[in-house]
């Protein structure tokens, strides 16, 4: 990891957030190392301000209850905000997925 280097991260958004942000299925964001979830969501909300508050609480930064974060076939939802994302995400070979939790029923 090179401190301060810029990475291009692919983020996959759920349908409702794509519509709200008027994007396609994925967006590509430039994020400085270290690439953490917090840094990635900061970049996402800076690029798409209308997504503020829809994934995490604006004030506390806490993930909304029915939002999950998946990558590399793992659920990263409970990982610390400041943990570096998996190398495959950081290198751009795997997307970081923002997912609405299953409704059930």
């Amino acid at each position: 990891m090179s401190e301060g280097a810029v990475r291009e991260i692919v983020v996959l958004l759920p349908t409702h957030l794509r519509t709200l942000a008027r994007t396609g299925r994925t967006v590509t964001l430039r994020v400085h190392e270290p690439v953490t979830r917090c840094a990635l969501l900061d970049a996402l909300e800076a690029a798409y301000p209308m997504l503020g508050g829809t994934i995490r609480d604006r004030k506390t930064g806490k993930r909304r209850d029915f939002i999950r974060f998946f990558a590399c076939e793992q659920d990263l939802s409970l990982e610390p905000d400041d943990a570096r994302l998996p190398e495959a995400v950081v290198s751009g070979s795997e997307p970081f997925m923002v997912v609405g939790a299953m409704a059930g029923g």
Binding site: P14, H16, L17, L20, T54, R64, D65, I67, G100, A101
Partner: peptide, 8 residues
């Protein structure tokens, strides 16, 4: 609004 993504 939705329970998933909050208030817009």
């Amino acid at each position: 609004s939705t329970g998933w993504f909050g208030q817009i």
